[in-house]
Nucleic acid binder design. Structure first.
Lengths: 191, 191
DNA sequence: CGATACATGTAACCGGTTACATGATTTT
DNA sequence: AAAATCATGTAACCGGTTACATGTATCG
């Protein structure tokens, strides 16, 4: 079935955000509840246990802020091990299984990959575009094969899925272009 | 958070398929594992317990086929209560929460709605199109608001989400058209 | 006779949801 | 003084995943 070869979306979102800037449970909750990234959970009942587990596993380390005050805050940073784990996850090859079972996780990975450099981003997008484009004919063939026996709405629902994948491939191509032509900022030069 | 005002995708898929034709655990597994609808689980460890629960709740009833043979089969049909529950689920209004948290479930509903008649299908599509179209500006406004502080890939990821929703709205409009012009088969006439 | 398809299930594990619990600080 | 926000957690529940367990029937 091959559904779970990856870390959960919540874990990825948490360590990804922490990698950009140290975060407390509360700041994560706030971010999730005020941005469209809230699609990846929220509620304290998910976040605090997840943070605890990540700390137990040594991926993140919490430092108490305002230790003396009456309202202390626990701010987590990535450990070296956590950084390694995150980078490993972000650079994993994009597989058809991901395309089918873990699309949201894939899109979630994307913004965090930027830290690894634009070449990594391009590698990801290229793989993504290729896997998606390769999957579409499979779906089309299936649809062709059953179009006699399927109901009208069944066909339309499948069409929706195919259109969705087509849109993603298009998006990836567009993103590749935008990133490729992204000014290496000639006024600064990089030598 | 409002995530769980609906039955699980697996349950919906199961009772939806049973409503089209009585099914055994095995036939469901087979269907899931050989069609793109397998996105909604599979594995016996999910299906058999789900069937048991649905039977306990009185939504489905199992009849033993080949009772005398050494390889009996349990074929489930919808009860009246199950039919009511399914129809209730299928005719629920499409909300923004669904659009955000339960998109897959919404698309899964779609082919089963056809049994309720094309007017129900059109009602669903109209609501779907409207809710999606209303949600898009919210996302666009958010993106505009943060475009200064967001990273390149963060923006592109958001753009992907918006494009996805736009594609869905387009699909819904297209589906409405296709269904509306769907020949009411003039050779038969309905009076 | 071995492989594949038919057929149904269980048990340990994991992690997300919901709801609850507590209390400090700041704003109105 | 009340309300909102800051801040962190726990506990019961639910259901999906993985892996295991068992046995029959059919086909080559």
């Amino acid at each position: 079935m091959m559904k779970q070869n990856h870390i959960s979306e919540l874990r990825l979102a948490i360590i990804g955000l922490i990698s950009m800037q140290p975060q407390s449970g509360y700041s994560l909750r706030k971010f999730f509840s005020t941005t469209p990234m809230g699609r990846f959970s929220s509620s304290p009942g998910a976040i605090y246990p997840a943070l605890k587990r990540l700390e137990e596993e040594g991926w993140i380390a919490g430092a108490i802020d305002n230790a003396d005050s009456l309202r202390p805050k626990k701010v987590y940073s990535l450990t070296e091990e956590g950084t390694r784990a995150l980078h490993l996850e972000l650079t994993k090859a994009v597989t058809r299984e991901d395309i089918i079972w873990n699309l949201d996780g894939l899109i979630l990975r994307f913004p965090f990959i930027e830290q690894l450099g634009l070449s990594e981003v391009l590698r990801f997008l290229t793989q993504f575009e290729e896997e998606v484009s390769r999957y579409i004919p499979t779906l089309e063939n299936y649809l062709d094969g059953v179009s006699e026996e399927i109901t009208l709405c069944g066909r339309l629902a499948m069409q929706q899925g195919i259109d969705g994948y087509r849109g993603m491939a298009r998006w990836a191509r567009h993103a590749i272009e935008e990133i490729s032509t992204h000014r290496p900022d000639p006024t600064q030069g990089e030598n």
